[in-house]
Design a protein around this nucleic acid. Structure first.
Lengths: 333, 333
DNA sequence: AATAAAACTTTACGCGCGTAAGTTTTATGT
DNA sequence: ACATAAAACTTACGCGCGTAAAGTTTTATT
């Protein structure tokens, strides 16, 4: 930096000022620097910059499982928004492991991020680690809520979306049973409770089919468990509401293999619905009827909320923003 | 660090030595530190560590488009391997943009990574930036090759896999046409050439259907283009080999919408095949016949090669490792 | 018990930059 | 032309840690 300052004919502190905000120096000085910049291509070291700044332009993004296209897509949108706003997003995946989530949060601390967007593991999170982290770093939770942690939460309203689907399924055929795995996060629990409530409000008995498996390989769980459930004739109804789309995708694959025709048309014997409108839900066999989570809105609002928080424009009270899901009718139910 | 050194009863340099390699200090010293560690939970600042070390434990991973499940899955495996080997992976997505790829590479430099695993944009890469980067940082390219750049390349052998598929399709029905988009990377070009070669070797005329679109939204391109091609009756044969699975997924969705039955059974009028064995290929409608790229092998070998390179155990000559694809027969062709 | 080797401590400097304080130069108004 | 404020300069220190050099203590060897 010293060298480059000499080359451009300004002092190092002025150069530092320029990189922090090009408009903060005189026009003549600015052009001197930018001319030298063209010839020598110098760039300040991002991680040294942050060494001594109170607030950096780094934004941490932590998701529980990046190989899940839902999170991949959300992460993509969030990264773009951050970049466009002049921030530097750094993306981490917990790979479904508490230990990794903890390590990521601890490392994130030393990055001195301006803020962090965290989709926690949920049930699998280490509450005290997350709590401590949220105290130290401006954090907005999304997708998966942990009561009281973070400055805000942005997600979707399972108690609106699940009843919506239950209503639709009941109106158009047999009432659904709920297919779920061991819940990995609060959403799964909420969806189960919302399902129960919705059924009971209709005077119907809820049926819950629990598949083995406690990791994030939902397709496999849905497939393996689906085979077992079908073979053992354990399906209480001819309508199956899956706790999420990935589970539904795996389950429908099992149906296909067992020769069960899935769909709402008359020649089909089973209806399957999902939740989330997973990026590949419209390409499944048959295309999956599901609840669309508003990806764009959740991403946008999360980022906006974080920016507000970073700029200090957020009141002390923790806000929870829930977006409504929309019914997406396709061929499967 | 000073404080914590005092707390554990050792000097700061010794503490530094411990964190660099816990085995490099005497057992008694080590336990002193680790006892203090339990009570006070101190962690060195990763990005300050790298400030003054010749070699860090950081490994950069750069993929062109992380919302593509293929890359999401490969990134997942690579991250795991790095973590298990005691490295600290940092993941970046270029979002299909040259400008971002350049920025990522330049920022990566200041991270002083021990090595970088780079799946370049390919055609969209800025050759001189990548070249300069590879000179400065130990880099292994994967998935998409750029002649001469990086210390090694690991990918799959399109000139083996595509002919394999062509052979299968010819043997079991009408010879295929090739459905492609504007090629975003070298693989697309290689696949086209491999297709041409394979057809010509059989004395057949190659037919190439090019769809509009030059970004990474292959499903959309396959769907929109598919609708157009089908409406205009521009399909030269009843067998379509898609340049990659995502394209095939979109295309099949268009077929479904147009009421065209896809599959190899007698009541179907169109066969569709893909390439890659995308994580969702087996869940499509109908399940997609495709070529399985050996995800695991590519990830493993990339990481292994990089580790060798980092440890200096690699000769000067640039190596190219190509894995063979395997035919995965499903219902679509 | 003597000796060498290993491990530790103290001291000091450096990484690439931010930033504050005090001083000098430059642009603006009159 | 001079006064004044804004901008730039010089100087100095700090971030959190790595690391080299020199001296001191501990451990292993004979």
């Amino acid at each position: 930096m010293e060298e480059f300052a000499a080359l451009s004919g300004v002092s190092r502190p002025t150069l530092s000022k320029y990189f922090n905000d090009p408009n903060s120096v005189r026009q003549s000085t600015r052009s001197k620097i930018e001319m030298a910049l063209e010839r020598h291509d110098y760039r300040p070291n991002i991680f040294a910059i942050n060494q001594n700044r109170k607030m950096t332009k780094n934004i941490g993004i932590v998701v529980p499982f990046l190989a899940d296209p839902f999170f991949a897509e959300i992460a993509r949108v969030i990264e773009r928004r951050c970049i466009d706003a002049g921030f530097w997003p750094i993306l981490f995946s917990s790979h479904g492991e508490q230990k990794l989530e903890n390590e990521i949060l601890n490392s994130l601390r030393s990055l001195k991020p301006a803020g962090v967007l965290l989709a926690p593991l949920g049930r699998g999170s280490d509450h005290s680690t997350v709590e401590q982290f949220c105290r130290d770093v401006p954090t907005v939770l999304f997708d998966s809520n942990i009561e009281g942690l973070g400055a805000a939460f942005v997600g979707s309203d399972n108690f609106q979306s699940v009843p919506l689907m239950v209503e639709y399924l009941c109106r158009t055929g047999e009432p659904p049973c709920l297919l779920e795995t061991q819940p990995v996060n609060p959403n799964a629990n909420k969806r189960r409770n919302a399902y129960k409530q919705a059924m009971e409000q209709r005077g119907l008995e809820p049926h819950i089919v629990r598949l083995d498996g406690s990791d994030w390989n939902f397709e496999d769980i849905g497939y393996d468990g689906g085979l077992r459930v079908i073979r053992n004739q354990k399906l209480p109804t001819n309508t199956v509401l899956c706790s999420n789309d990935r589970l539904a995708i795996g389950f429908m694959s099992a149906c296909l293999e067992m020769g069960i025709r899935v769909g709402r048309s008359s020649e089909c014997s089973l209806r399957v619905a999902g939740h989330d409108d997973h990026p590949f839900a419209k390409f499944t066999c048959p295309p999956l009827t599901t609840i669309a989570q508003d990806y764009a809105a959740i991403s946008e609002r999360s980022v906006e909320t974080l920016f507000l928080l970073v700029e200090g424009g957020l009141s002390g009270t923790r806000s929870e923003t829930l977006f409504e899901g929309k019914l997406v009718m396709r061929a499967s139910a």
